[in-house]
């Protein structure tokens, strides 16, 4: 029983946290690709930027002496999302829109977004320094919920922190809201129409410039949520999300570029693959030692991949997907 509890704590809960972050980031990448047809390389930094926006707001609240029962990072999230969405619109207007107006190729836009990455990382370092910061600005303690498992014969509890629970709830709310937006609202349907066939969307009289703006608002605000959650889960630093750009792109591609639900599935798929790959299976298989013959005990660490090579997992999944099913799980727009 304890082995199962250990598995739930280490794989199920961590995987869901990571999956939520990947999914929210990948949705932005996939929507931007669907509407604007380029790989937005700077998306990781948009997440980092969103996290810093939340950090500034939370610090301001804390400095004002506000005390709240929830982590400040979550409380300021709605405002941080709006600010990050505005920043995303500004970045598009300043850097990508002029290139589009000149009919630039997707490769040109991709390279411009690499430029935006460098610029944003530089700016963040300039303003905030390169040190690691805690998102728990008011010194909030992470409340831990312990679910007693003694009724099932477990000696240890299933433990989950309050921020983790909030992350699950926030992610679930966002996914439901996004689903309703894309399937019920006029603008959401126009967005799907433009991702499906941009020329026909234009011919139908759809205001494509408006759809582009809505895309940045969604991508920017979700990047803010993903970045803030990542910073709450780990810590805040200028290259916070740059390190997870690869898994997020992998998630978007595996799910099928342009396909919002695919990005969600892809995000959780990559996250669980990573978590399972670095999981130490000895902890779960230890009872086998009792039945194994003398001198054949399990090694102390039986992880498939050493933690420091975690990134290779996303890479391998990406390569396999591209070889076996290049359009992704859901039929994407990449071809």
């Amino acid at each position: 029983m304890d082995e199962l509890i250990f598995f739930i704590n280490r794989v199920l809960i961590s995987g869901t946290v990571l999956g939520s972050i990947y999914a929210l980031g990948a949705i932005g990448i996939t929507l931007i690709f669907g509407i604007l047809r380029f790989a937005h390389f700077a998306h990781g930094d948009m997440m980092t930027m969103g996290a810093f926006v939340a950090f500034v707001l939370a610090s301001a609240l804390a400095a004002a002496g506000v005390v709240l029962p929830l982590p400040m990072g979550f409380v300021v999230l709605p405002v941080a999302m709006i600010i990050t969405a505005l920043l995303a619109l500004g970045i598009d207007k300043g850097f990508y829109a002029p290139l589009r107006a000149r009919g630039a190729k997707p490769v040109t836009l991709l390279i411009a977004s690499i430029g935006v990455t460098l610029m944003m990382q530089g700016l963040l370092r300039l303003i905030f320094g390169s040190s690691t910061k805690s998102m728990y600005v008011a010194g909030e303690s992470k409340d831990i919920f312990r679910i007693d498992m003694s009724w099932a014969g477990g000696t240890r509890p299933i433990s989950i922190t309050e921020p983790q629970v909030i992350m699950f709830v926030v992610t679930a709310l966002i996914v439901v809201a996004l689903h309703l937006f894309l399937t019920r609202s006029r603008l959401g349907k126009a967005m799907r129409a433009m991702a499906d066939n941009a020329a026909l969307a234009q011919v139908s009289g759809i205001n494509t410039a408006l759809v582009v703006r809505v895309t940045w608002v969604i991508a920017g605000s979700l990047a803010c949520v993903a970045g803030t959650m990542l910073a709450l889960d780990v810590a805040l630093m200028p290259d916070l999300a740059f390190n997870i750009v690869l898994p997020i792109f992998a998630a978007a591609i595996v799910g099928g570029l342009g396909h919002a639900y695919g990005a969600i599935v892809g995000g959780f798929l990559i996250a669980f693959a990573e978590t399972l790959a670095v999981f130490n299976w000895t902890a779960v298989l230890r009872p086998l030692n009792a039945i194994l013959p003398e001198g054949m005990a399990l090694p102390a660490n039986l992880a498939l991949v050493p933690t420091e090579y975690k990134l290779t997992v996303a890479f391998v999944i990406l390569v396999v997907t591209l070889l076996v099913r290049p359009t992704g799980i859901f039929k994407g727009a990449s071809t």
Binding site: R186, K189, A190, R192, A193, D196, N197, A199, L200, A201, V203, S204, G205, I206, N207
Partner: peptide, 28 residues
């Protein structure tokens, strides 16, 4: 909105969207 409509020769439906959603897009 002025009353002009165009059916292109090719790729003239939103393939991933339902028939009804295609019609709705015409009324955007």
């Amino acid at each position: 909105p002025k009353g002009l409509s165009f059916v292109p020769q090719e790729k003239n439906v939103f393939t991933s969207m339902s028939v009804e959603e295609n019609l709705e897009m015409g009324a955007f």
